[in-house]
Amino acid sequence: MANNSFLLFQKQNTWLEQWDPRMKITVSLIFAASLLLNHNLILKTAQIVLLIALWWVAKLSWRALVFTLLSLTIFFISTMIYRSMLITNPGDTLIHLGALTYSQQGAIDGILMCEQIAGIVLLLSLVVRTTSPIILAEGLEMILKPFKKLRLPVHEMVMMFTIALRFLPILIEEVDKIRKAQMARGGGFHRKGISSRFRGVFPMLMPLFVLSILRAKELAVAMESRCYQGDEGRTPIRLYQMHRRDYSVLAFSAINLLLVFIV
């Protein structure tokens, strides 16, 4: 069985887990906006350091952090090549390093872009790993509540999101089983070479799709038999209350956004 537990929320009773989900979602959106709008290398680096510090506060695995960042390597490399070597503007200082020639401003832009990608992914990762999907969904539902008046199926959308997250590790496990079953019958997934590995993916898609549909059908029956009928008559599983801590974090993120405009 594949161990996918590091991809998921694991309860650790840390400070970050105690934040109100509505506030956590709002702060994440503000922080993401400040990352996107920030063009100052020092400030953006400080934001990344802050995210890594929060990772440490959340007691999340360093292995997971490295795994998350390494999975972005291809984006980092392509961004750096594109920004610093392929795009040069008139007046740019060109630096020659052996056979390589790159623009100094382009390199700084490239680093900023890489920090932006890493920052957004780390931020999302932090939110997902420090919040139970159900709490996250409840927070999202509370924030989007006004849209219910416009007949937007907010509850249904949030429930779908929660279930998708819940079934992610099961689907990963299922992929592993199908892959091994096909390898045992001479399937191409294990062969060397990117093209044969790539071709080996396609025969896995159909059984995975069929299994997902069957699981979804069974889950729907199970949910219905446990009296689920949309959000009609449901009581919230938890009651949420904003604390001084939540307002402080919200204020801090607002200051962070303000700094981006000032610096």
Partner: peptide, 25 residues
């Protein structure tokens, strides 16, 4: 059992049905 569990934790899964019937929070 995997195809009937909605919650991520033991408590959340038990609470799912209770919430559906409007059990007092």
């Amino acid at each position: 059992p995997e195809n009937q569990q909605v919650g991520m934790t033991v408590g959340e899964d038990i609470a799912f049905g209770l919430s559906n019937i409007g059990y007092p929070q």
